[in-house]
């Protein structure tokens, strides 16, 4: 059960003013209107996802390091193809060698998948103290002349501690996948299928965005189309599984993709704005870290209180999606 959440953002800021200076005809306010983002935190040269996860986890642990017996690390930008970055983090964090450690490769749905894994490990008795880390450095994958991704994504790391005895309860998980959408959000030459030595052409789209096969490609309209189909079903299925109606849900936290998309989904689903969390203005879309960042924010501001029921939903790259209910304690 979730007992603590801690997050870390890199120091370097990429503001809308910075981007407006680079892109002719764009203004800082136009970027904000289109995305709901004013600035993103981005890593500097040599700063890796494991560094962000480490900083978040260091703040979390205190004296409880020796108790950790399972480390899960959600990332799509690992330090190496091998070894597993979670093993490096086990050593760097000073966790016991009896601690299991594994990476899993998911993006925007990754936190909910991580919650389901951690919850299952605790409930099955396989672990007593699970640490779920999320971190990504998507900004290092973005071509400087791709406005469609550079205006959206930021970097972050988060850490969530699960304890068997106490904490926020999780239930009613619904998970899904549809690999037919794989090419809509992809780094084409990032693995074995298309090695970098293969000469795939760099292209420029109608809006002047440069698409290099070694960089992140996102087909925003197709991703939006996917969310229109997947997210309403996901929300309905989670509520059905929990035997709850939207009326008794106190808070809804979706993956913070971009504000326009979320506002449309909110209206489509009839979620009151006072129950809906938007938390991307000063950090951007941080992939698997958006939901824990939003949770940390609502805890800090006192908006999330004891006994509240929260519907969480993550969706994106894969395609992959997941949702659940969190009862905060």
């Amino acid at each position: 059960m979730i007992s603590q959440i801690s997050c870390h953002l890199p120091n370097k800021i990429l503001s809308n003013d910075d981007l407006a200076r680079l892109y002719v005809g764009w203004t800082a306010e136009k970027i904000f209107e289109k995305t709901g983002i004013r600035e993103r935190r981005v890593v500097q040269d040599g700063e890796c996802a494991s560094d962000l996860a480490f900083a978040a986890a260091e703040r979390l642990f205190g004296e409880r390091k020796r108790e950790a017996d399972y480390l899960l690390f959600c990332t799509q930008t690992p330090d190496y193809l091998l070894p597993t970055t979670a093993c490096l983090l086990q050593h760097r964090l000073g966790l016991p060698t009896a601690c299991a450690a594994l990476d899993f490769n998911l993006g925007c749905s990754g936190y909910v998948y991580g919650l389901s894994l951690a919850n299952s490990l605790i409930l099955s008795g396989a672990a007593n103290r699970v640490v779920l880390l999320t971190a990504d450095t998507y900004t290092r994958l973005i071509h400087p002349q791709d406005k469609s991704t550079r205006t959206i994504f930021g970097d972050a790391g988060t850490a969530t501690l699960f304890c068997k005895e106490s904490g926020a309860r999780l239930h009613s998980f619904v998970l899904g996948s549809d690999g037919s959408g794989a090419e809509q959000l992809m780094v084409k030459t990032s693995g074995a299928r298309f090695p970098r030595s293969d000469a795939l052409p760099t292209t420029v789209d109608d809006s002047g965005n440069v698409h290099d096969p070694a960089c992140l490609y996102m087909n925003g309209p197709e991703i939006f189309n996917f969310t229109l189909k997947a997210v309403p079903n996901l929300v309905r299925e989670v509520l059905d599984k929990a035997g709850l109606s939207l009326d008794v849900i106190d808070m809804v936290i979706f993956h913070q993709a971009n504000a326009f998309m979320l506002e449309h989904l909110r209206r489509k689903l009839g979620i009151p704005s006072e129950k809906f969390v938007l938390n991307m203005e000063f950090c951007g879309n941080t992939v698997s870290s958006t939901i824990p960042l939003a949770l940390e924010a609502v805890v800090k501001t006192g908006r999330l209180r004891q006994g509240m029921k929260v519907l969480l939903a993550g969706f994106g790259v894969g395609y992959s999606w997941g949702g659940c209910i969190l009862e905060w304690n």
Binding site: T35, S148, G181, D206, M218, N219, M261, H264
Partner: peptide
């Protein structure tokens, strides 16, 4: 008619016509 413009049009179609377009 950029990425965000096409998303806005898809949202309008969803709201006004209640239909989702094929991939």
């Amino acid at each position: 008619w950029d990425s965000m413009g096409r998303i806005a049009v898809l949202a309008m179609i969803d709201t006004e016509l209640g239909c989702e377009l094929p991939s």
